[in-house]
Write a protein that binds this DNA or RNA. Structure first.
Lengths: 206, 206, 206, 206
DNA sequence: GATGAATGAGAGTTCATTCAT
DNA sequence: CATGAATGAACTCTCATTCAT
């Protein structure tokens, strides 16, 4: 292994350390509670050092977002490889989103953050991860189209993004209004999810 | 008109001027770019004066949110009173959301659960406006259930909130990713909307 | 009664109303919680109107201080007229200070405020009330000197001011540190007072 | 000297610089006139920098208070170690208070229970310094009790706090009213002090 | 590469006082 | 006389970013 490569690896390692610290803080204090002093403290690095590995706080957030998307991609990939019908795969993908949100609510903030904040610039790499997810979901939709289970009026790529947008919206609704809806209307998150899946399933199917 | 009333009106007017200024700034610089110096500057008022009309910046945002919700409610009300089928009303409501977003993209930020919610405590009055919207939509869903056009597996109130969440998600997607999706995939906002409505219609119908 | 006089009385009355309101607020929220908005609110007068009767907030405080001093003077006068020894009168005056502090702790803040804040200017009228108190106490000390009960090394006027300063200091100590002293050292306010009176009595007596 | 230690010293030094600046401003403009802009200006530091050394303005005041108390403690300690009678030590302590006030009138503001207390929460460390002073004075009083020179009616700890309160009261009186008393009554600060010491001495002695 | 002290532009909020009506 | 809306300087505190060492 050359020096170049080792350096590269060390650099990657540092980045990873910083991202892990940022995650941990987000988990404890939420996205708004995250600042560079805390990251410096958590990593035992100087604040200036962090700027050697990431050119801004925004870049750290963008990397975390990429990480989150890759995790989601992995979950989706497992679904794609399952031996179930295409429609069931699409339903499973929605459920996977929900499970991801329940398991990593702080990560879901990042999705929201980037979905909502038009002033942050989505880098090429970030778009790539989105694209990967979209392509994966689309491939399932294409399969559904081929096997005739998909509503023929629906274009697979269009479906993919629509599902994405709608699902993120549902998760946000749960996160922000979930308690209120539960308390005032006695509708649980699970009931909302069930309704959403029912809607989507019927909407998708031929 | 008594002095009391005129004073009241003038006060309301000032509040309106401040809210309009806040809107304008939000339009130009987004929710994040909104601060009291800018509002003071835009209104040609001293910063202290603004505090005579609103007790905090948060209150200004909360008023704007209420305003936005009321505007949306009014749009929905017109649909409810139309002489069309219940299912068509629900579709029209989704379209109305889209039109509202196109007409007032800056106002739509206020619907984005995430951004606002990190900064704002949902007051009773704010919840009231949500509730009004929800009740209105639910009444249409109930009607659909009665006339047998609604998928019997779906509970009207659950449908209402699911539609709300999903629709806001779609609008956010358009706002933040619309250009990218158009440029890279050649899917227009209208195409996304069409897909979404198709999905929802099939999902809702019996 | 001429117009001049009635006007004067009305003016005096307004001033009284304003002072009463200020007192009430001080009682509820302390000296630091007192502001002109609250006074305006309490009196149902416009803020500008208050400035017709007092030229500044400081003037209001100075009048309240005068009132407090007059109340204290009245308490002292009763003691002077009692049929007890001069030394007992001086002791009674210290006790009267304590009782006044216990009954009107918010008024005592005013004493402190003026005793401590060298940037507030004592008006001639304010000094007058101090002088009245001092003269009254001095007259008792002079009597003690005459009847031979006073330590001959002590000048009556010097004693008067020394007693005043020391007593205010003790009251402030009680107010600010009373709880701490009670909790940590188990010395009650009454025990402190007793010690102080014992000290002063022995100090004063021949 | 290790880096750790040098860094620590530099940090302490900066804190000292900030405290000195705060002192200087207090001397010129009083406790009320002290604000962070002035401190920043005086130290030639950015406002934010000051927050690297003290977490709030209150902390600065609390440090100054502790400093002042420690200075006073040191003065008292010298007296305790002198080869004079216990009673003379107690008298010397009162004189030391006066000298401290004359030398550092701006610091004496920090002793004034009232002013400071309205703005400051007495921390454990702050109380500790009070306690040290009190214990020192008490030990002298206890000695006086042992050698039979103390008025047996008087409890040493009670005496300690009473002396403290009364003395601070006298100093405040001098600070705020000294000029007036001198001008109108021709009683000098020294005369007041003499009277006070005479009173206390007689009060304390058996 | 690594440091972390320093920066300084903001941020939201308060309140005694003024002045046009 | 009375009003009360308007003022605006003052206040404490935050934090992403820079740069001399």
């Amino acid at each position: 292994m050359g020096t170049q490569t080792r350096k590269q690896l060390e650099k990657e390692n540092r980045r990873e350390v910083i991202l892990k610290a940022a995650e941990k803080i987000m988990l404890e204090k939420g996205l708004h509670g995250l600042n560079l002093d805390l990251i410096a403290n958590e990593t035992q690095l100087a604040k200036g050092t962090i700027y050697l590995y990431f050119k801004s706080k925004e870049e750290i957030l963008s990397f975390l977002t990429v990480k989150a998307r890759i995790m989601l991609y992995d979950d989706f990939l497992k679904i794609k490889n399952k031996n179930i019908s295409s429609i069931d795969k699409l339903k499973a993908i929605i459920k996977a989103n929900y499970l991801f949100y329940k398991k990593n609510p702080h990560y879901y903030d990042l999705f929201s953050f980037y979905e909502v904040n038009e002033r942050l610039i989505e880098t090429e790499e970030m778009y790539k991860t989105s694209e990967n997810i979209a392509n994966l979901v689309e491939s399932i939709a294409v399969q559904a189209k081929k096997d005739g289970s998909l509503n023929p009026n629906i274009n697979p790529m269009s479906l993919t993004w629509t599902m994405y947008g709608a699902t993120v919206g549902i998760m946000q609704l749960m996160k922000v209004r979930g308690t209120l809806i539960k308390d005032k209307l006695n509708i649980s998150e699970e009931a909302l999810l069930k309704t959403f899946i029912e809607l989507m399933e019927n909407g998708i199917k031929k």
